[in-house]
Nucleic acid binder design. Structure first.
Length: 616
RNA sequence: GGGGUGGUAGUUAAGUUGGUUAUAACGCCGGCCUGUCACGCCGGAGGCCGAGGGUUCAAGUCCCUUCCACCCCGCCA
């Protein structure tokens, strides 16, 4: 603590117009964090270092709330204790960086601050070192002050000083570390897989990286380490994991970033049940650590078919009822043309019965109709079950026996509101499934504390892609079909079930995986069903097909979206709040301004030419 | 590619049927203040109303184009 240490300001004052002379850190070391001091520490001499949260200048006395990542401690600059120090403290402003040496003392009677953990004490400054000044920040570093997201992202280093955001990243760190220790103990090996890899068909659009050494050729950034982890199983590693960045060049959402992190794992010689219990043990640990309690294992299970029927989605939110009910058969012969025509065209009719929903206004019904249109529905029919009869634009088309059948099918009570959508199955499920979620929130049916986990199982292996006019994988092309369904692969491919499973938390998919194909012949047949020719399969996946011929063990795995998991655990509604440096919806980093144009010489080296922007 | 919400001072917002000098809060600057903690009091500065075009005697306000942020559909095995 050499008071003769030169001040930075002495050196720079002539060349750098700063608002205040700066000091060197010198030999000082931070002795306590800003959240630690308590009455028991009274009398200690401490050195605090941090940022000025707020300065309250009373003329004769200056208070500074000093903030570091852990918390806030009040520092008092009292001229009777250190006159020079008090004088310099007058120059302090928000976000200046300080080191303060001083003595811990109790605050006077009645002057404690119950809002701060350190609020019973304060540090009387003996010596102040101003380590850096700060421009006036574009927004205040407080959880309550909500700046717009573009300004927060541009000045992310200031945004990250806000305790809430910092805590989110601490939670993320904890999940990652806890995951590692859990898997390490169970004999899993963390293995890194390439980031520069090859583009594969199927799945998302790839990010491409040109190869300078191999001009005209491109690496792709991995959408997931899928094939590498399977190859590691062939290599006999038996238990692999990785917390790894994945890249998908698709449009963004609140829960989708172009680069995101997967907790990825794979095991040999296992079945579905081994995965379930492994993950249930892990989730329990994560939830206990971050939430203080955990849903009890074993978690609920639901088949894909059941989920689609009752929830209209493969990510059921089981925190509330309001289930979908199919009424196609009941209304097939009704006078209501919309229902009849939809059914004649191969569609279905489903209904939601909202208990006590008769009091929803016409405006709210109109809003719902607009809402279901987002998902392709043409409209939505409704019936209010009033005490004096059915109030509905369509009641007159429903014969008494149809009405009676609906009452039984939907367990209708007086006061209920019935909502119908008739269309192709996918549209009906999308529309009503999403409407159900919206109503759940709107009507307050959701317990905000609930953490409902459910395994969704028995997914179909394939689904028909009307645009591409071929089958595509529901999960991915390496997912094992259920063996007893294999014979359907050539005749009724959409009926083949896969050995895939998803884990859904409060209606959000947090993880998914499958038992993989480990026989070359099965893999070839699945590629064939996907319309991937033998030649293309050899070209794109030859290494996998070959590896499967060298003693591939039965294996399977699962991957979790770390960002989404932490988002849910932190109660956030966007994964941007759990990512240190996220991108905007246009996939731009507002802090670095990435992506940027490439230098002509870089392009020349890569043998690339940028064409004029396409005019759509 | 499409639908929606928003863009006004450093920040967050208000701004009437188009009408004098565009408001407020916080922040910022100056002054006063020895117990504040969202300190207080007095004074002050600060604006290309996202950008471009148009209508009009007159545009923050109306019209067109465009950019940016956010939410959603498509897309994301």
């Amino acid at each position: 603590m050499d008071i003769n240490e030169p001040r930075l300001g002495d050196q720079f004052s002539e060349t750098q117009e700063g608002p205040v002379a700066l000091d060197h850190l010198g030999e000082w070391q931070k002795t306590v964090n800003c959240d630690t001091l308590r009455p028991a520490d009274v009398g200690r001499e401490v050195i605090l270092m941090g940022w000025v949260q707020r300065r309250r200048d009373h003329g004769g006395l200056i208070f500074v709330d000093l903030r570091d990542r852990e918390g806030i401690t009040q520092v008092v600059f009292d001229p009777q204790i250190a006159e020079l120090c008090h004088e310099r403290a007058g120059a302090l402003r928000s976000e200046y960086v300080l080191a303060v040496r001083g003595n811990v003392r109790l605050r006077p009677e009645g002057m404690t601050n119950a809002k701060l953990p350190t609020g019973e004490v304060e540090v009387a400054a003996v010596e102040l070192r101003i380590l850096n000044s700060s421009k006036t920040p574009p927004f205040q570093v407080e959880d309550e002050v909500e700046a717009s997201e573009n300004i927060r992202l541009k000045y992310r280093y200031i945004d990250l000083r806000r305790p809430k955001l910092f805590k989110n990243l601490v939670a993320r760190h904890k999940v990652a570390q806890l995951t590692r220790s859990y898997l390490n103990e169970l004999g899993f090996l963390e293995v890194e897989t390439p980031v520069l890899t090859r583009s594969t068909p199927e799945g998302a659009r790839d990010y491409l990286v040109p190869s300078r050494v191999n001009s005209g050729k491109f690496f792709a950034l991995p959408q997931s380490p899928q094939l590498f982890k399977q190859i590691l199983m062939v290599a006999g590693f038996e238990r692999y994991y990785q917390i790894v960045k994945c890249f998908r060049d698709e449009d963004l959402r609140a829960d989708r970033q172009p680069e995101f992190t997967q907790i990825d794992m794979e095991m040999s010689f296992i079945s579905e049940e081994d995965i379930y219990s492994l993950i249930e043990g892990w989730i329990e640990k994560v939830f206990l650590e971050l939430k203080g309690s955990s849903p009890l294992a074993p978690f609920a299970r639901m088949t894909y078919a059941e989920s689609m029927d009752l929830y209209g989605t493969d990510r059921p939110d089981t925190r509330f009822g309001l289930l979908l009910t199919e009424v196609t058969d009941v209304v097939a012969n009704s006078e209501f043309r919309v229902f009849r025509q939809a059914i004649e065209r191969g569609g279905i009719v489903k209904a939601l019965c909202v208990p006590g929903g008769k009091d929803l206004s016409r405006k709210e019904l109109d809003d719902m109709i607009e809402f279901v249109k987002i998902f392709g529905a043409q409209g939505m029919a409704w019936i209010k079950i009033q005490p004096d009869g059915w109030q509905s634009p369509i009641a007159k088309f429903l014969a008494p026996e149809v009405q009676q059948a609906l009452i039984e099918r939907l367990s209708i009570d007086t006061g209920d509101l019935i909502l119908f959508v008739a269309d192709q199955k996918k549209i009906v499920n999308d529309a009503l499934g999403n409407l159900r979620g919206r109503l759940g929130k709107q009507l307050g049916l959701i317990d905000p504390e609930a953490l409902n986990l459910v395994w969704v199982t028995d997914f179909p292996l394939l689904e028909w892609d009307a645009n591409e006019k071929r089958y595509t994988s529901v999960h991915h092309p390496f997912t094992s079909p259920v063996e007893s369904d294999m014979e359907l692969l050539d005749t009724e491919p959409e009926k083949v079930r896969s050995r895939a499973y998803d884990l859904v938390l409060n209606g959000i998919e947090i993880g998914g995986g499958s038992i993989r194909i480990h026989h070359q012949e099965v893999q070839r047949r699945v590629f064939q069903a996907l319309g991937i020719s033998g030649e293309e399969a050899r070209e794109k996946f030859g290494f996998l097909l070959e590896a499967l011929q060298y003693g591939a063990p039965p294996h399977g795995g699962i991957a979790f979206g770390l960002d989404r998991l932490v988002m849910l655990l932190c109660g956030c509604s966007s994964i941007r709040d759990v990512i240190a440096f996220p991108k905007t919806q246009k996939a731009i980093c507002l802090m670095t301004n990435a992506p940027s144009e490439a230098d002509v010489n870089q392009l020349l080296e890569l043998c690339l030419k940028v064409e004029a922007e396409r005019n759509a």
